[in-house]
Design a protein around this nucleic acid. Sequence first.
DNA 1: TTGTAAGCGTTATCAA
DNA 2: TTGATAACGCTTACAA
Lengths: 343, 343
Amino acid sequence: MTIKDLAARSGYAVGTVSRVLNNQPNVSEKARRTILAIARAEGFELNSNAKNLKQQRSNSLLAVVRGVYNQLFADLVEHLQSLTAGGDYRLVVDYIDEGENEVRRARQLARELKPQGILFLGGSSENFRDCFGDVALPSVLVTNYGGELGFPNLSSVTTDDRAAAAAAIGYLIAQGHRQIGVIGGSLENSDTSSLRYAGCVEAFQRAGVPFDPARRYQVARYSYAGGYAAMTRLLESERELTAVFAMSDTMAIGAARAARDAGRSIPGDISLVGFDGLPICGYYQPRLATVIQRTTFMAETRLRLLDDMIRRGAGARHVLAPYELAPNGSVLDLGKKNEEDRL
Amino acid sequence: MTIKDLAARSGYAVGTVSRVLNNQPNVSEKARRTILAIARAEGFELNSNAKNLKQQRSNSLLAVVRGVYNQLFADLVEHLQSLTAGGDYRLVVDYIDEGENEVRRARQLARELKPQGILFLGGSSENFRDCFGDVALPSVLVTNYGGELGFPNLSSVTTDDRAAAAAAIGYLIAQGHRQIGVIGGSLENSDTSSLRYAGCVEAFQRAGVPFDPARRYQVARYSYAGGYAAMTRLLESERELTAVFAMSDTMAIGAARAARDAGRSIPGDISLVGFDGLPICGYYQPRLATVIQRTTFMAETRLRLLDDMIRRGAGARHVLAPYELAPNGSVLDLGKKNEEDRL
DNA sequence: TTGTAAGCGTTATCAA
DNA sequence: TTGATAACGCTTACAA
């Protein structure tokens, strides 16, 4: 079933059929009704390959997700999906491993799919610096700040990772903790981790609390198992630790398991703060203190920025998403505890 | 950059270029080398719209995922993604809400994308009975048994939900529990829930343990919040409950939170068994007993079945995936406990 | 308001 | 082994 068949069946020419199907003007009501009726009866759908070929573009948005096991990305994709569901764009999601180059991948897929824009979930500045140059499509980088890259077609929506991490450390310090470990990603491969790391260091310095990265910063993959392994190493060498900040909730939960397996209680012996604000935080035992990233806001903003660039030719913008520190049962108030101990 | 340009640049004709790019025979080594060199240098990619238009099909597999917040599906999609990553197919993932009709959606998308096959994650027999008739593509239904539907182009890979649920209940009974609640999906909308429900009833009957569905079966959405709400209702009306089986790990974790918020301990007061075998089970506190679904096996089998149907014209097959009951800290051995109490 | 026809980038057939 | 060309289904000028 093609528009030719529709034309034959309706007695109109293909041009008219096409105009009707695309809601264009200059078509008589009669033609519109007749043609639509037949189309509906036959369950006719335009062939998007032919359409895209002709128009030299498709109606799709390409989302390249780097890091398959990242629960936060899953959340974001879900939001994106439901936001685009009714709209003008079709979302094509592609997942790649953390080790791969997301920009090169996007470039290749873009040649093939001719999407209208690209969304990057996760990614590293380095790859953008190296390869983004010849990507001409409007793009949005999520969970990474793209401001200093200076590409005119690359917007970004990201949490202020530096400030957010500093807030997490500040919170632990305010609760009386001084012996604090940090679990995060590799500082070479991950901008996000680097920014959060910088925020941690800043918070420690500001409060005059000593922090020896060589001993107290443990690199891990963003997964339960990664958090588990990192915590195990921390507990072995740093016996006097009273708190740990993990750069993702999944790592924090892995860390909690490791602590318990090592005979430490949460938060009795070790207080724990995560990052992301996944739904599980409120259901974990104890409820997990975390830095909430506003996924709904981020998803909406992304789409808006991208749409502005595509439809209105807007320039690149860089938006910081609000974050929120969520105190919870996984953190013990040491000040209070010491006071009670004195009594 | 099109193959015409490539032809001009290389001095060969488009036909030759096309043959080279598609690894076809009857091309001289020299032509192959020359053309590939230029293509690589220019970063040339075939336009898949034109290709698909011409070939009347694409190289994609369509995966329609029904139930956006289902963590198990996320797991399965990840597996699928990594399995297809290097291969001949491109995976296009589409997420729809639990309320939507997955078959109708697939039919529409199929017209547009011309995929080679369709994967359904989640779905209900009813929709298949109503709408699958005019879907001609090889398809695989996952997490739902499709055997009795009798479509020649619809395979299925599924856990034996009935037996698996019976095993979960049997386990609780073996541990001495007699007052057992069940949390699961709507029996009208979800085949999976219905099968698991039937397995529960069967296990109760076999063991001679009374079970009043009206009071002890609570319908919930497959989410933390759904489990929480269902558990809250259960605890209010059924004070003497000692154990609960939830038809997903997420619901089980929601239920655990509800129990604790109601002042009950896990597993001291309430034992808990989940379903799916998500990674979180081993990290939750206490570790969550569950019925493990073998996601890797399921993902691999699916692809194999689909590939057999596409490439070798194989008929529909219905495979039951192995499941495994994983006992864990969230279940209290009441027999043992009673014995200890006596001493 | 409608019809006609060119052309999008590719594959595949047939002739050379 | 290579080249020329029709065709895939659609959009869009342009003509009627």
